[in-house]
């Protein structure tokens, strides 16, 4: 067991963890933040994407001990009160989901993808989301949502 200190969505947590515990399991089981999903066992699907020190990462491919001292944002940390994050709002407005399982990872990846890129093209969005899989194959509206959020970021 190793003691780790992490800041998740602005709250500091100090916990003892097994060295072989994956960061995603730590977030879901130790912090009870179950918005971050586990969709595969092979680091391919991207349902577990979170931001660690401002960069998108697959939390199933990092150990909790490796996150010691890190600043983490999960899907739960995006909305401010009742006001959704612009990317969440864009997914809502454009029906950017079917079953919703991949959505947290899609949103976390997409936020980083469009950062400073209000004019990002549809092709760049499709390419940029290559680390996230949607088993419903609902990519059309996901791409539409991300494009809407990018355009919205330019207007604000």
């Amino acid at each position: 067991m190793t003691q780790v200190t992490v800041t998740v969505n602005g709250n500091q947590h100090i916990k003892d963890v097994s060295d072989n515990m994956l960061l995603v399991d730590f977030i879901r089981e130790k912090l009870a933040l179950t918005g971050t999903h586990v969709g595969c066992d092979t680091s391919q699907c991207g349902a577990c994407v979170i931001h660690v020190n401002g960069k998108s990462l697959k939390s199933c491919t990092m150990l909790a001990v490796q996150a010691d001292g890190c600043d983490i944002t999960t899907i739960e940390g995006l909305a401010v009160g009742d006001k959704l994050h612009p990317m969440q709002q864009a997914f809502h407005d454009n029906h950017g989901l079917q079953c919703g399982f991949c959505t947290p990872g899609m949103i976390m990846s997409a936020i980083e993808l469009i950062e400073g890129r209000p004019d990002i093209s549809e092709q760049e969005i499709r390419q940029g989301l290559e680390g996230n899989l949607c088993r419903c194959t609902g990519y059309q509206n996901i791409v539409k949502s991300v494009q809407a959020a990018a355009t919205h970021s330019q207007q604000n």
């Binding site: 991207g46 994407v49 960069k55 998108s56 990462l57 697959k58 491919t61 990092m62 990846s109 980083e112 993808l113 940029g128 290559e130 680390g131």
Partner: peptide, 8 residues
Amino acid sequence: GDRQVRNR
């Protein structure tokens, strides 16, 4: 790889 692989 993908974006997340490149980040790490």
